[in-house]
């Protein structure tokens, strides 16, 4: 079984001193734990030079050095495709609403690239976009007090990228 980790999940686990639990989980499952290179940069390389984040970075660096957390190169074109599609799903005031950053897209691209079974992410919007896009649309409408348009083709395309087995057609 393969797990791809987004930076948000690793940040949460390292800040709450739970990295060792991750290792135990990996051993119990016999799973592979993988991150994108950009996630490594964000959670280790960069914060190693920022004093208040250094300890968390060291924890994660240790995981990579001990080889139970592996770094993989992401297909850049695939990641850009995901970002472009995700950021053209919802529209407001005549323009697209850019919900997703390259950071999340790299993790999603890696899931597809490696046929991973699990994406570990501590972030609401990406999860809602993939699993419950209609609820995300309602959230956006409620928060902005504005009508939010949805592009069914892009939502279906995102669904078709095999992050989740659920279909959006019925939801819309």
């Amino acid at each position: 079984m393969m797990f791809v980790f987004d930076s948000s999940a690793l940040i949460s686990m390292s800040q709450t001193c739970l990295v060792k639990i991750l290792r135990q989980l990996r051993e119990a499952l016999g799973a592979e734990f993988v991150i994108a290179e950009s996630v490594y940069r964000e959670t280790v390389s960069t914060p190693l030079h920022i004093r208040r984040f250094e300890l968390n970075a060291v924890r994660l660096k240790k995981a990579v050095d001990e080889k139970w957390l592996r770094i993989e190169q992401v297909d850049t074109d695939a990641a850009m495709d995901i970002v472009k599609t995700a950021n053209n799903c919802f529209f407001a005031k005549g323009g697209p609403v850019s919900l997703m950053h390259r950071g999340e897209a790299d993790a999603l691209a890696l899931v597809r690239q490696l046929n991973a079974q699990v994406l570990v992410i501590d972030e609401r919007t990406t999860r809602m976009l993939l699993e419950t896009p209609l609820r995300l649309k309602e959230l956006l409408e409620g928060k902005h007090n504005a009508k939010i348009g949805a592009r069914k083709d892009n939502l279906e395309r995102l669904q078709g990228m095999r992050f989740t087995p659920q279909s959006t057609a019925a939801a819309l």
Binding site: I11, E42, P47, L99, H101, E104, T125, K143
Partner: peptide, 22 residues
Amino acid sequence: YALGLGLSQAAELTGANKKDLL
């Protein structure tokens, strides 16, 4: 983020550190 943006997108918008944001 509360208004619906993704975590990284929200951090990028204001230049906030993602760890501080989380």
